Amino acid sequence: MHVVIAPDCFTGTLTAHQAAEAIAAGWRQSAPRDLLTLVPLSDGGPGFLDVLTGALPQAQTLAATVADPLGREVPAALAVVDRDGHRTAYVESAQAAGLHLLDADERNPAVTSTWGVGQLLEVALAEGATRIVVGLGGSATNDGGRRPAGRPRCRLARRPRAWWPRPRRAGR
């Protein structure tokens, strides 16, 4: 029998790769002759870049420092791939705005922000990306891209239709 094992991560315990290996190990104990194909998956949340770079060996991982949902600096990464005349950047939003970056008492979508995701997009553009794929999931906020209070507005792309409109302040 040919079995395809395609799990997502088990948040807080196993990455998608680790989950696939664990499932395969258990399967092999009961059916050692079966052919197993491991295909770790991601819903776009934490682990998106790990799964992607595992599937795209030509991907180059770039390190960055961005703001977490409360504006503190955190290490993050993105991947870039040159293919078919385009430079594509892959961004995992959870690296900057992930729920896992906050303690339980810090989880308040009224004060958290996706500012760091915008910073990752800026890094992608600075690296010459002509396409950007954003994995969305595991977010600590639902701010819809609004800027944190006191932060200047920034353009996220070179084409006018690709940047977010200026947020309006309450009372205006």
Results as ranks from 00 to 15, higher is better:
132 I>F: 01
120 L>Y: 05
140 A>F: 08
118 G>K: 04
120 L>V: 03
112 T>K: 04
118 G>T: 04
130 T>Y: 02
120 L>D: 01
117 V>W: 00
109 P>Y: 12
137 G>F: 05
134 V>Y: 01
127 E>I: 01
141 T>W: 02
147 R>I: 10
113 S>H: 12
149 A>H: 13
140 A>T: 11
117 V>D: 04
130 T>S: 09
113 S>Q: 13
129 A>L: 08
143 D>K: 00
106 E>S: 06
149 A>P: 10
142 N>T: 15
147 R>F: 13
118 G>L: 02
142 N>K: 09
131 R>T: 03
143 D>G: 03
105 D>N: 13
109 P>G: 12
139 S>K: 08
124 A>C: 09
109 P>E: 12
141 T>E: 06
127 E>W: 01
130 T>M: 03
142 N>I: 08
145 G>E: 07
121 L>W: 02
112 T>W: 05
146 R>W: 00
130 T>R: 04
144 G>T: 14
110 A>Y: 14
141 T>C: 09
132 I>K: 02
143 D>E: 03
112 T>C: 04
142 N>Y: 08
107 R>E: 14
141 T>S: 13
128 G>S: 10
110 A>T: 14
128 G>A: 11
120 L>I: 01
114 T>S: 14
133 V>I: 15
105 D>G: 11
109 P>A: 14
106 E>Y: 03
140 A>N: 13
137 G>Y: 05
138 G>D: 08
131 R>V: 04
146 R>Y: 00
129 A>S: 12
149 A>Y: 10
107 R>N: 15
118 G>E: 01
116 G>W: 00
117 V>I: 11
132 I>T: 06
140 A>S: 12
143 D>F: 02
126 A>G: 13
138 G>P: 10
127 E>Y: 01
122 E>D: 15
132 I>H: 03
106 E>D: 10
134 V>G: 01
148 P>E: 14
147 R>C: 10
119 Q>A: 09
109 P>F: 10
107 R>Q: 15
108 N>W: 08
107 R>Y: 12
118 G>M: 06
134 V>M: 01
127 E>C: 00
121 L>D: 00
113 S>M: 12
145 G>K: 07
108 N>A: 12
120 L>R: 00
122 E>T: 11
114 T>Q: 11
124 A>N: 09
146 R>D: 02
141 T>K: 06
114 T>I: 08
109 P>R: 12
140 A>C: 13
117 V>S: 04
141 T>H: 06
125 L>N: 09
127 E>M: 00
124 A>W: 01
146 R>T: 03
125 L>G: 09
118 G>I: 00
143 D>P: 01
136 L>I: 12
125 L>I: 04
138 G>F: 06
134 V>C: 03
108 N>H: 15
148 P>G: 13
113 S>P: 07
139 S>G: 12
142 N>D: 14
110 A>V: 11
110 A>D: 13
106 E>Q: 13
134 V>L: 05
134 V>P: 01
139 S>F: 05
140 A>G: 14
108 N>G: 11
148 P>T: 11
140 A>E: 09
147 R>A: 09
131 R>M: 01
125 L>R: 08
130 T>L: 05
115 W>T: 07
144 G>R: 15
106 E>R: 00
141 T>V: 10
140 A>R: 09
117 V>Q: 07
143 D>M: 03
111 V>Q: 15
105 D>R: 12
107 R>I: 15
149 A>W: 08
143 D>S: 04
